[in-house]
Amino acid sequence: MLRVGLSVLCIVAALSLSAQNCFDFHRTNCCPLQNNPYVHYAVSNKSTSFALKPGDSRCILFEVFSGKDYRMTLCSDSLYSGIVSFQIRDDNSVLYDNSDEDFNTFLEFSCRKTTHVELIISAPNRSDVASETKGCIGLLIEEAITPVLGF
């Protein structure tokens, strides 16, 4: 019994160690490209980092609220050389696809309608690396209340 318990503990420890390779990757590597002096952003707790194999995808469920501004910054380690696909989808359609914009890593928008969206991040295929190789990807999400425009 003790042996089984120890084995489980070892497996969990090994898994958590490998997961921690990308721990807080978004905090240390994702740097917003533009700074808007009129909007004061706060980091959302939906910001995340994870390891992804070439060709794999990760879907993050996210709720955007009307009356809020969002700033999303994508970053990845050298394995993906900055070419990571990023899509925002709602139930019906693709709202944003960064492959239309040369794999842009920075998006700032104002939300007009509260809705649930899926943030889909896909790593590019790499034939030159081992299939088990993983690279870190981070998504920094910042949010702020939309500033009032006009008098």
Partner: peptide, 20 residues
């Protein structure tokens, strides 16, 4: 985009202009 979106209630989100 922000000024153009004023009259469009169907939009879910609008790309931000940093030229404010």
């Amino acid at each position: 985009a922000l000024a153009d979106a004023e009259n469009n209630s169907d939009l879910i989100f609008v790309r931000k202009d940093t030229d404010m």
